[in-house]
């Protein structure tokens, strides 16, 4: 039977994975967002030759399940470059988040009202100024709410990294269960730790959504 002491040990052990979970989420979100910018710009290009590779990247990356990506990078590329689980997971998750965020940014750019571009053009702004001073700031606003809620999805996706051996929340829960800890308790605790991060995050994303609705004109 599990005593209070057992449960508090479980808490401690599983809690040590929290940092890794958060690091994976933050790193893959931020690096992914940086990569997503040029991808989204290419994706919205009027030139087919520029647009096509970006479209292919977004579709293919999103078309393959997260787990399969992580297995390809960790086991598949293992014969070529041997990576530790954490870097392998970071590469995979960053790849995936860059594709999802690029799609959000594309939607942001395309949903800025056409009148905005026309007004900027009519003022004689150069195309670069039209984009960076008028379109981009509004596109960011439009892309923010879906991107914030993507952060929640990404947080939950990081759990898959435990399968290739990244020592996150769920990894430790699984390990303790293998050592004889009660599974119901261990995974309830693991779930609780995810909720501690994901619930505030998703409230934040709704808050952002609400704030921004007041600020932007969307078609």
């Amino acid at each position: 039977m599990n005593t209070e002491a057992d449960i508090s040990t479980l808490f401690q052990v599983i809690g040590t994975g929290l940092v890794v979970t958060i690091v994976m989420t933050v790193v893959s979100f931020c690096v992914g967002a940086v990569i997503a910018v040029p991808v989204a710009l290419m994706r919205t290009s009027r030139t087919w030759l520029v647009r096509a590779p970006a479209t292919a990247f977004i579709d293919v990356v999103r078309g393959i399940p997260t787990l399969v990506w992580l297995l390809i990078i960790f086991y598949g590329l293992g014969n070529i470059v041997s990576l530790d689980p954490l870097p392998a997971a970071l590469i995979g998750l960053t790849l995936i988040s860059s594709a999802y965020l690029a799609e959000n940014f594309r939607a942001g750019i395309e949903n800025v009202h056409t009148g905005q571009k026309e007004a900027a053009a009519a003022l004689g702004l150069s195309s670069a100024h039209q984009f960076w001073r008028v379109i981009a700031p509004q596109a960011v606003n439009i892309a923010m709410p879906p991107s914030a809620s993507y952060a929640v999805a990404l947080l939950k996706d990081t759990a898959i990294a435990a399968i290739i051996g990244v020592t996150d929340i769920i990894f430790f829960a699984q390990q303790e269960v293998a050592r004889g800890a009660p599974a119901v308790t261990a995974f309830l605790i693991a779930g609780g730790f995810y909720l501690i991060v994901s619930v505030p995050l998703s409230y934040f994303s709704r808050f952002v959504d609400h704030k921004i609705r007041e600020k932007v004109v969307v078609v």
């Binding site: 009148g115 905005q116 900027a120 009519a122 003022l123 008028v134 700031p137 932007v216």
Partner: peptide
């Protein structure tokens, strides 16, 4: 730059 335009829907920059 030599010709100004005013639109039906104003198109002010909301940001």
């Amino acid at each position: 730059r030599r010709v100004g335009m005013v639109f039906q829907t104003f198109n002010l920059f909301p940001h």
